[in-house]
Simulated assay, not measured.
Amino acid sequence: MSEVVLRPMTFADLPPVMGIERATFPADAWTETMMRGELADQPRTRHYVVAERDGEIIAYGGLAAAGDQADVQTIAVLADHRRSGIGRLILSELLAEAARRGTDSVFLEVRADNDSAKAMYTAFGFEPIGTRLGYYDDGADAIVMTRKLDG
């Protein structure tokens, strides 16, 4: 397989991104209107990237940052490309962007039943700080996690 390249997400990327979104999060996928709203705030308060391999978008992720706090909005990887380090690559980029913007801490929500994502976030130094009961559209709980950034 060829190298994975990260680049800023653009509006032109929305068709493949929305396909990944619906495949990854069938019960609570964002709408294209929601994603367009996120991109409209880029780069002011948002930082979205896509991961490409051989010209195909295979993953994406996004960060919201304002003041001293940032939030990982989403990370999604096509099923055929999971467990290959792409999610870690995207998370590393989002954390680097949070640091570039001078934030002190990064927050995220992860499905309580998504053990692989929770393990990745824990490996990156995120710690659980609470639970949002019934957070997702299908009634699943979310674990709220945070990580302090090195000053």
Rank of each mutant, 00 (worst) to 15 (best):
M34R: 08
P43M: 07
H47T: 07
L39W: 01
D54E: 11
L14K: 08
G19D: 14
I20H: 07
Y48W: 03
R46W: 03
E56S: 09
M18S: 11
H47P: 09
M34D: 13
G37W: 04
V50T: 05
A27K: 12
R22D: 12
T31I: 03
P43K: 01
A40K: 14
D13E: 03
A40D: 13
L14V: 06
E56Y: 01
V50M: 04
I20P: 06
V17L: 04
W30A: 13
V50S: 10
P43S: 09
R22M: 08
R22K: 15
M35V: 10
P16W: 03
A27L: 12
G37K: 07
V49P: 01
A27I: 10
Q42P: 11
A29R: 06
P43G: 01
A51E: 06
R53A: 15
V49E: 11
H47G: 11
V50F: 03
Y48D: 00
V17I: 09
M18T: 04
T24H: 10
T24K: 08
R53G: 06
A29F: 02
F25T: 04
D41I: 06
T24N: 12
A27G: 15
D13M: 07
G55D: 02
E52M: 04
A23R: 10
M35C: 13
T45A: 15
M35N: 12
Q42M: 13
T31G: 06
T31L: 02
D28C: 15
E56A: 10
F25Y: 07
R53P: 07
H47C: 13
P16E: 08
F25R: 11
E56D: 11
L39R: 02
A27M: 15
A27R: 14
Y48Q: 01
G19Y: 04
A40F: 11
R46E: 14
R36I: 00
R44S: 14
D54M: 05
A51G: 04
D28N: 12
E38V: 02
I20D: 08
H47D: 09
A40P: 09
T45E: 14
D28T: 10
M35W: 01
P26F: 09
G19P: 04
L39C: 08
E32K: 07
P43N: 00
A29P: 00
Q42I: 05
A51S: 06
T45S: 15
A23V: 03
T33S: 14
E52T: 04
P15N: 09
M35E: 14
P16A: 12
R44P: 02
L14Y: 05
V50D: 10
E38L: 05
R22F: 05
H47Q: 11
A51W: 05
G37H: 02
A29G: 07
P26H: 06
Q42H: 13
D41Y: 13
R22P: 07
E21T: 00
P15L: 07
A23C: 11
D28I: 06
R36A: 03
P43D: 06
R36T: 00
M35F: 11
G19L: 12
L14E: 05
M34I: 05
D54A: 07
R36G: 01
T24M: 09
A40C: 09
W30I: 04
R22E: 13
P15V: 03
